[in-house]
Write a protein that binds this DNA or RNA. Sequence first.
DNA 1: ATGTCC
Length: 495
Amino acid sequence: MQDWKRFLEDDGGSVKRIKKQGRMRVDALVVADEGHIEKSNDRSLEQLTNTASLPGIVGEAWGMADLHQGYGFPIGGVVATNVEDEGVISPGGVGFDINCGVRLCSIDLSFDDLGSLIRKKSGSGSKEFGNRLKGRVPSGETGKGGHRLSSGELDEILSEGAKAAAELGLGHYEDLVSMEMNGRLDGDSGSVSEIAKRRGMSALGSIGRGNHFLEIQVIDEVFDEAAAKSFGIEEGRLTAMVHTGSRGLGYQVCSEHVKFLEGKYKKTDGTWHAEEWEIGVADIQLASAPFFSKDGQSYFEAMKAAGNYAFANRSAVTQQLRNALKDHMGSEVDIEVVYDVCHNIARLEEHDVHGSTCSCCVHRKGATRAFGGDSPSLSGRFSGVGQPVLVPGDMGTSSYVLAGPEGGSNRAFGSSCHGAGRALSRRDARSKIDGLAVKKELEEKGTYIYETTERCLSEEAPDAYKDIDEVIRLTDEAGLARPVARLRPLIVIKG
DNA sequence: ATGTCC
């Protein structure tokens, strides 16, 4: 089904438009160049046009420059619904890893200090920093090995997010102002099932697997000095980037609500229909509930609580990094949070849609918020600059810090891309790429990988991903966010 | 992405 190809037109810059047709209620817009769209060989664009038919959708269905196929909704998609006029919320529009996101920390060390991190220290019991760090931060498929929480502590984390982590000594209070929403979504632990809670009991402070990582990086190049200054970063400084989410707890929350909502839909005349709400969806994986319905609110509450767990998780990983670095260097090294963003989340936000204000449920699935500097949701320190947008790349290339618009909003409900996007499926990558050879090549270039399983070396190899520089160029050209700095990986902890 | 299937 490539019907959309007949309705494709240029929208200026790096934006392509798919005019609404069939059951689509709005157009779809995609950040991509000509070749990019022609080469699209997965279902992502068909999925994007499917989302354009969701009840209550407003503006346009957006595909970011790193768009690829996901569960029902494409990854790299932004879908906003008018919650006061039939707008729905959908777990598939958020994704299985609720509040998967990225935190960037600035380390009070420069590239010249790298030697003391790479070198093995002499003497018994000493080890290189990467091994020391890996020993403190569980990665891979285990849901254990993290901070063991009592059920009272877990409830606090689900309700209070990063602040609760700070109360447990797993974060600093002063970090909270440098996080989206100060590290807390208005959540409630009572909305999360016991099974989901059980999966969160000993996973706090773990990174997981797949594209998740903990990296020590160097700021390789600064493109926007004023923004970099406002974010507290400068060329040659070391940084740490944490890319992880809500682990098994969020996965459990998503699957429970997906399963429940999918059960409300029946297929009649080739379309999925929920009699209870008199609404239909183009694909069962888009199963949704009206935002203010009991079931819509039940998911939204649980999603926010799981999101709080993810904020606390990134805090706990940061704390272990602080501990490991102190152990290694023999004294405290200052590590400050630059910013912490969600890229799998649904948020209730006011947006201007074709000239009038609208209360929207904005689904960002593999998309990062990129608000303008004058947004009331941001602290004044980003005034005239725009919020930090953190875009992780693959383990061999680079990651980027972008900034949202200096003022006002961008066209995509204040959103930007979230990564490089896969070029090869995991299976193709395993069959085509020699993981150990990749590790050796990267080491020669000064990037040291500390992997849990050999398999991730091929699945996560640079060649398994699209070119991040190109994704950033397209995002910039579309006017969604502008480059501030490029970060090069030095020490990589992976699952 | 995920105790790669409750």
